[in-house]
Design a protein around this nucleic acid. Sequence first.
DNA 1: CTGAAAGCGCTAACAT
DNA 2: ATGTTAGCGCTTTCAG
Lengths: 317, 317
Amino acid sequence: VLAGLGGASEATQRRIEKAVNELGYRRNRMASGLRSQRSTLVGVVIPDLQNPFFTGIVGGIEEVLHEAGYTIFLANSGSDPDREKAEVSMLRSERICGLLIVPSACSASLYQELSDGELPAVAIDRVPDGLVMDSVRVANEEGAYLAVKCLLEAGHRGIALVNGPVDIGVAREREAGYLRALAEAQVAVRPEWTVSGAFDSEAGYELTKDLLERKDSPEALFVGSFMTALGALRAVTELGLKVPDEVALIAFDDMPWAPAMNPPLSAVAQPVREMGRKAAQLLLERLRDPELEVRSLVLDTELVVRDSCGTRKRVMR
Amino acid sequence: VLAGLGGASEATQRRIEKAVNELGYRRNRMASGLRSQRSTLVGVVIPDLQNPFFTGIVGGIEEVLHEAGYTIFLANSGSDPDREKAEVSMLRSERICGLLIVPSACSASLYQELSDGELPAVAIDRVPDGLVMDSVRVANEEGAYLAVKCLLEAGHRGIALVNGPVDIGVAREREAGYLRALAEAQVAVRPEWTVSGAFDSEAGYELTKDLLERKDSPEALFVGSFMTALGALRAVTELGLKVPDEVALIAFDDMPWAPAMNPPLSAVAQPVREMGRKAAQLLLERLRDPELEVRSLVLDTELVVRDSCGTRKRVMR
DNA sequence: CTGAAAGCGCTAACAT
DNA sequence: ATGTTAGCGCTTTCAG
């Protein structure tokens, strides 16, 4: 009856349900999982629980996994490869049946293990170099290209890139988009205007401050993430500069509060929930059929233009 | 050796470690938990994974629980009492040894079960009425009082309260603080200026819009949460009003991006991480000694005054 | 349709 | 210091 197999008489069923209620019986999943060698636990590992971008992904995952009767086990790697490895190991100990992961860094051995297919897994947002595994990510190069193009069309020429860590593919792809846009507009690249650090507010602050304190400073910034933009904004304000008139700015990641910021932030919006949903679907399909070929989904971004990228008369020459 | 009891010779230890590595052995926690009737899994239930306030709490929890060797199992109730009940039930099935919960609503039967002490649990932020259980919350009445007082000192008299759901104690306490501040300043209370809805952006928008479209509208808003403030800000902007000159605003919840908003948001900051840390500590202590008396911690808030509450000449009379 | 029995991988208590 | 054994609560298989 409890297994829902439906091989019991109505009366027995009722009798059992009554007993369950009276005794407060609850199936022991440890015993159950131990015996059946199955579980409906899916591990989810993200770099930072505090970051709305990652929790948005988890929201999407939850939506489809919950529907399918799976339970998610969430772990937080703190962007630390060692911790990430430990968390995955713990999840495996907990006998998860599959893994959804936003990789933190290139802990090759860990990912190798995953791509072996021993544990069904899908990588989200970032796919470690040279690994063949199911994944969902975003068209970073294209998104960055559009953002920088928007800055160029607003008349800016001196555009700096305040990027995330280059050992994360995402950051390299965004740099590629930045370079393509500049090349297309025949704007000379100034390598000293490409800086990078963590995807957080502190790095955004330091890098931007350093950039803007130079004698020869850029007039526009393309910034790698929302948290980075927050730090950049703080640096700009501290130096007494105005956005967008003195420094224009456009960032990756859109947030519900971007329109309420000062000035309203232009951003490359990522389909955050959708990334989570798609990843969960890929996992579900693989669970159903482990022989499936490897699939990589690339979702599109959307450019949301608000005030922070400014409009400047184009300098013709 | 694996249990870390240290009753083995160096050589055996090494031999075992070698075997573990070679075979890729990983302890099966299901079997282990089943046999020992213990677990180091702590369930954490929050209303909304997307809300930085709650994820901040989880951050604090993680900090101390991780340190103590526990693993957290995170569940998301979506502010739905039924779902909350289901999640807790699932967590119990998963044989958690303790529970940390930010209650969504007054699902009395669930909380009754928890306060029975059958499962060690501590309530965070909100404590269901009339329940005696370990808890950590914030001095909401005092925080609200200070916020409204700040508005009063800026010269505002017509102050509305855009509150969260009144069936959550937090909202009622904030209302009490609002009323105390008005009473103290001998400002007449206008009941039609106290409105309430969900703690989200949509509710903030609707309630504020309704409030400001009236003939006789308030000149200042005390808003129940950050997400509510976001909606309120949208309504204000849509009506073509300026903050703080035409409508002043102060909100509960501070956020890292509050200073970068337009205008910089005044807020009642809650010690979010600390709430999580303290709750985890309470649980750890109770796990160690189930006979401990029930403890309720109340943490202080801090008023952060920025531009959104405005300064208006006091009207003497 | 219902009952009985074996065993999942581990831990704890006991024997060597 | 190491080896042996029973049994945690369940699922699965086989008998009635």
